[in-house]
Amino acid sequence: MEGTTAGPELGTVIVGVDGSDPARGAALWAAAEAARRGKALHIVHAADTDNRAVYASVETIERIRAAGRELLDDTAAAVADLHPGLHVTTEFSRSPAVPSLRRAAGVHGTIVVGNRGLGGFTSLMLGSVGLKAAASATTPFAVVRGTDPGVETGSVLAGVRDEHDLDCVRYAACEAELRKASLRLLHVWNLLESVGDVVSMLDDVEEISDRHAHRLSVMAELIREEFPDLTVYADLEKSFSVAGVLAEASQGADLLVVGGRRSPGYIGRTLGHVSHSLLHHASCPVLLIPRQVNNQGSES
C-alpha cells in the first residue's frame, strides 16, 4: 500500500544505525514502516571519519570503514529476512550523524533513530546526538524506544495542543490508516499555562474547558471528513503535567504522534519541554512532526 487517500505525503524512511541493540530495533521498526508506506528504506551509518582522520591513523580509519560497511550489510540482511520485497539502500557517511541523516531525508523523508546508542562519535544516544537531530529536524523524526516491538494495540495516539497541530493530526491519521488502526486525539490543557491571574480564572474553569473541548471536537470532525474510513476518538483531560498524561496514554498505543515545537526564549532550534519529556519517557515510538516556521521566525 502506497500513501493514503488523504493527508500529507509519506516519504521514504531513513534510519541511523551505530551497532547498538536499540539502533537495530529502530532499523527493524523503520523497515516495517517503509513496507507499510510502500517506500524504500535507507540505512545510514555515520562514522564521522573526515573529522577523525585529523588524529587517527590510516589503519584505524580503514578499520572503522570496514566495521561500518559490515554493520550496514548485516542490518540490510536482517531487514531482508523480515521484508524480502522491500527496497533497501545503505550509506556509509564520512560526516557526523546529524547532517548525514538530514541530508539523506531531503524534503519528505522520515528519520528514525533508537532511543540509545553506543556513545562516542557514532552515537545516536538520546540526550546527545539523538536529541540534537530531533531538535534540528525539518522532516518527520521518529524515536523508537527499546528493542522489542511488543504486542500491537491497534491504536495511534496524537497529542493535540491547538489548531496549529492540524498537520500533525493529519499525519497521525495517515499512520493510523496504514496500520488499519484507530486514531485517538488527546488534548491535555494545563490551567497554569493560561495567561493572567490564575486565582481570578478559577470561576471560569468550566467555560475554559468547554472552549478546549469545542476546538478539539472541530478538529476531530474535520479528520473524520477527510478520513471517512478511520475510527477517530477525541479525549480532553485537565492536568498539571501534559507530558505525564501523554506518556501514560502511550502505554496503549502503537505510535505517539506529536507536533515538534521549539521552546520560546532560546536561540537556535530546541525541543519544547513536552516533546523532550516524551522522547525520554513514552512507552511506544514517538513521531515528531515539525511545525512550519514563517518568515518572521514564529511557528504557524
Rank of each mutant, 00 (worst) to 15 (best):
T153P: 11
V199D: 15
L126R: 02
S277D: 13
A6S: 11
A35Y: 03
P285C: 04
S283D: 11
S93P: 01
K39Q: 15
A133S: 15
P140L: 10
E163H: 01
V107S: 12
I14M: 12
S209G: 11
N295W: 13
I61M: 04
V113K: 03
A46M: 06
P140K: 12
V44C: 09
V286D: 01
H276Q: 15
S277A: 15
R102I: 06
G265Q: 04
P149L: 13
L185T: 08
R224M: 00
V195K: 10
L183R: 06
S194P: 05
R215Q: 14
A137T: 14
E226G: 02
V88H: 14
A76I: 09
L279I: 09
D203G: 01
I208E: 08
L256S: 01
D197W: 09
R261E: 08
T75Q: 02
W29S: 06
C168T: 05
T270R: 00
G146F: 13
D21C: 09
R262F: 15
A104H: 03
T139I: 12
L28E: 03
D18Y: 11
A172I: 11
R224N: 00
V107D: 08
L183C: 01
T270S: 08
N295D: 15
L86M: 06
H273Q: 15
R261D: 11
P96W: 02
E175C: 08
A80D: 14
V98N: 03
V169A: 04
A135C: 14
I289G: 06
L71C: 07
H164W: 03
H83R: 09
G268S: 14
A66N: 03
N115D: 06
A104K: 05
L216S: 03
D148P: 04
L101N: 00
E70T: 06
A282P: 11
N190C: 07
L82F: 10
A104F: 01
A23S: 14
P84V: 07
